[in-house]
Design a protein around this nucleic acid. Structure first.
Lengths: 141, 141
DNA sequence: GTAATTGCAAATACTTTGCCACGTA
DNA sequence: TACGTGGCAAAGTATTTGCAATTAC
C-alpha cells in the first residue's frame, strides 16, 4: 500500500524511529480506515498483536503530537484514534445503541463558521469535530 | 430562579422524586450554565457538597434518561454534563491547552445536513455535537 | 555508542455497582 | 407502607507512568 509507505515516510521525517510497533499501528489504522480504540488496535491481529498496550498508547501520543493522528472523544468510555490525512476532514454518524461509527460523505458545512471563529477569537490551530448521534434503523427496528 | 423551578417541575413530572440532591444538581447546572464534570458538580459549594458522588452520578443518569441532561464527550478524561433546554442548541469552543469551554453564539450551521441525514439514513432521535478545538490566545501567547 | 523506544507492572483516574438504610409520595 | 433514592465502600474499566532492557540510527 502506498498510503502506508507515505505514512511511514512521514513519521520518519517527523523524527520517529521506524519500529515494528510504528509500522503495525500505521498499517492497522490505514487498513481499517476508521477511528479505532486503543484496545482495538492492540488486539488487531495483523502485527499490533505483538505490541504492548503501553507502547501503542505512547506511539499514538507521539503520532498525535506530530499531527498524524487525532484523538476523538465520541461518547464511549474509550477514546478513538484516527489517521489525520492532510486536506481530508471527516464527520461521523454514531449509533448510541450499538456504537457503530460511520463516516459521513456530505461536505462539511462548518468551514465558514470555523473561519469566523478563528478571526474573532484568535484561537490558534483551530479545528472542529462534528458528530451526529442517534439510533440506527436496525437498532430502532 | 424561575428556570430552576421549571426544571424541578419537569423532573417531578418525569417521575423523579423531589430530593435535596435533585435540587442541588439542577441549581448547580442552571446557575453555572455550562457543561460540568461529575467532580465539579460534587464539589460545587452550594448544596451538592452534601451529596455523594454516586448519588450525583445516578441522578445525572436518570436526568439523562428523561432527556433533561446530556452527557458530552469533549476531550477530557472526565465526561461533561449539561442541561438540555428544549429548542436551545449549543456548540462549544474548547482550548486544548487550558481546557476552557465556551459556548458559541453564532447560529449552528448544521441543521440542514442533520435533516438530510435523518432522511437518508433513517436514524431515530438524531442530534449532533459540534466542537471547535484550538489553543486560546492567552495560552498561545 | 547514544538516545529513543519497548515491555512489564504498578499507579491513577474516572465510572459504575451492591447493599442496606432512609425519605418521599 | 412501598418503592424510589441516598451513602458508603468496593469493583470495574481505561489511561498513564516508572524503570530497566532493548533497539534503531
Amino acid at each position: 500500500m502506498s498510503l502506508h509507505k507515505d505514512l511511514l515516510e512521514k513519521a520518519k521525517n517527523s523524527g520517529l524511529r521506524r519500529t515494528k510497533a510504528l509500522e503495525a499501528i500505521l498499517t492497522c489504522l490505514a487498513e481499517h480506515n476508521r477511528p479505532m480504540t486503543l484496545s482495538e488496535l492492540t488486539s488487531c491481529g495483523h502485527l499490533a498483536e505483538q505490541c504492548d498496550k503501553a507502547t501503542v498508547f505512547r506511539l499514538l501520543q507521539r503520532l498525535s503530537d506530530k499531527g498524524m493522528v487525532r484523538r476523538l472523544g465520541f461518547h464511549e468510555r474509550a477514546a478513538y484514534f484516527t489517521l489525520l490525512v492532510p486536506g481530508v476532514h471527516r464527520d461521523y454518524l454514531i449509533c448510541t445503541d450499538c456504537g457503530s461509527i460511520e463516516a459521513i460523505e456530505a461536505p462539511c458545512p462548518v468551514h465558514k463558521l470555523e473561519e469566523e471563529i478563528r478571526r474573532e477569537t484568535g484561537f490558534v490551530g483551530l479545528y472542529h469535530e462534528l458528530e451526529f448521534f442517534g439510533c440506527c434503523p436496525s437498532c430502532a427496528g
